[in-house]
Amino acid sequence: MEEEERSNLIRVIGATVDAIKNQDIMQLKNLSNETIHDAAIYQEEYSISIAVIIYALSKIYEREFNYKKDKGWNSYCIDCIKRLELAKEKLSLNDISGFDKIIKEYLDSLKKLDIKLRDNILEVIHKAKINKASRLYEHGISLGRTAELLGISRFELMDYIGKTGISDVQENQTIDPIKRLKTARGLFK
């Protein structure tokens, strides 16, 4: 892991814990977006996983009211903060494999939650992956590479991207569309 990425992750994870404690949903979303720059450049699973986890947490805490009544919610919240603090500690000690283990254990622990809470949270995580994939694509990484990095299908990603304004940016247009259409006409005489 590059030093710049490591120090960014330490800062972002610390701020994430504070944001959860302060119930600052907007800050969680901002922190997730911040990690996307590193995810696009370094493309290491650490930055990508953290971006997905933080975005998912923003969605989970945004809908806290819905989950509060689910069995296991309180212990999930306590466990989540504990694991994030531990992950930050491992990174601070430059223990990358320890950090990696904590993140993987956190994701595995979701599968052991009570069925209703588990299904809800895993669905949020899946949607967070698609959202973060669309942000990577927006940053210039190709559709195929992005789908590969996030482990999602191109079908899902295209469907999501189509509903964003990503293709409307100025840099997107390379050739006059009428000229491109004329080229196509020339192929189908």
């Binding site: 720059h37 694509y137 210039g140 190709s142 559709l143 195929g144 590479r145 390379t174």
Partner: peptide, 22 residues
């Protein structure tokens, strides 16, 4: 897909996009 098209047709436009976003 956009990125491959930019790479073939105008890689400098792709650079502009990357610079703005990153």
């Amino acid at each position: 897909e956009r990125t491959m098209r930019l790479m073939i047709e105008n890689p400098f436009r792709l650079r502009k996009l990357l610079e703005r976003k990153l």
